Each structure stands twice: as structure tokens, then as C-alpha cells.
Simulated scan of single mutants.
Amino acid sequence: MISGAHVILYSQDPEADRAFIRDVLDLPGVDAGGGWLIFKLPPAEVAVHPADGPTRHELFLMCDDLDSQLDEFRARGVAITRPVSEQRWGKVTAIRLPSGAELPLYQPLHPTAHSQ
């Protein structure tokens, strides 16, 4: 039986991104040894989309109220890297990690599987 999922973010500055996830996103975690932090994620779901080119994988953090979440991030000095885009499936944007990478964030407007 599948008991969970393990997501890997590759980073040019893993220490800074780990500190951001711990201190700014407030995700609890464990030290797997030597300061190698692994974070607990909120409930998750997986979707399979068609690919027009090479296959790839994406990670989006989800929130219930995107506008409030962005206000909280701005108050903490987090850079919002994309204007909020309203799609039929949700409202989407992205934030900047300390390494410079973007982390997409969205508020789903579709039924969610993780609450089932």
C-alpha cells in the first residue's frame, strides 16, 4: 500500500531554501542527519496531464485563500514572481525561493482529492 509521497526540490542553494521552507512556510520537519531537513507537507494530490513535448513534473503548493496567503508572504518579505492569473481550475501565482527558483502556488476552484 502506498503510504505517502516524497517530493524532491533541486536547488542551487539548498541550505537557504531549507531555511525558507522551515522559517517562512512554517512547515515542520525532521533532520535526516547532518542538517538534511525533510519537511512534512500538507495533504496532497496528484494529477496526470497530457504532455506536448518531453514529460516533466511540477510541484504547486495549494491554499484556500490565495489573496490572504500572498498578503502574509508580502509581510514576511517573500517576493511574488507572477501576477495572479485566474484560470477555470484556479487562481495561480508563484513565489521566489532564496535560491532564485520559483515555487508555484494556487487556490483550486475545482473539487480537491485530498479532502476526500
Rank of each mutant, 00 (worst) to 15 (best):
V30N: 10
G33A: 07
A75E: 01
Q69M: 12
P28G: 08
I21M: 05
P42T: 13
V84R: 02
P54K: 04
D67P: 01
V24A: 00
I80K: 02
A51R: 15
V48P: 03
L41Q: 09
D31A: 13
W36L: 10
V84Q: 02
V46N: 12
V24E: 00
L59M: 03
I21E: 00
L70Q: 08
H49W: 14
G34S: 09
A44E: 07
G34F: 05
G35K: 09
D65G: 10
P83A: 09
V48F: 04
V46C: 13
T81E: 10
T55P: 01
A44Q: 11
P43I: 06
D67K: 09
A79W: 04
G53M: 13
A79L: 08
F60N: 14
A32Q: 05
R82V: 02
L27P: 09
D31I: 05
T55V: 12
D65N: 15
D64L: 11
L41D: 03
P28E: 11
D23F: 08
Q69L: 15
D26W: 02
P54W: 00
F20V: 04
P28N: 06
C63L: 14
H49E: 14
P83C: 08
G29L: 10
R22G: 06
T55A: 06
A47K: 08
V46F: 12
W36H: 10
A44G: 08
L41N: 06
D64Q: 15
I21L: 05
G33N: 07
D67Q: 06
L25E: 13
L27S: 15
E72C: 11
C63H: 14
P43Q: 12
V24D: 02
M62Q: 11
S68N: 14
P43T: 13
P83Y: 11
F39S: 02
D26Y: 04
D71H: 14
D52A: 11
A44W: 14
D65Q: 14
D52G: 11
G33P: 04
V78K: 01
D31S: 12
P83W: 09
G53H: 14
P43N: 12
A47C: 06
Q69N: 05
L41H: 02
T81R: 02
A19C: 08
D52Q: 12
G34T: 12
K40L: 08
L37D: 08
P50S: 06
G35S: 09
R82E: 13
A51S: 15
A19G: 07
F60C: 13
E58S: 10
H49D: 13
I21N: 00
F39I: 04
A75T: 01
H57I: 07
T81P: 02
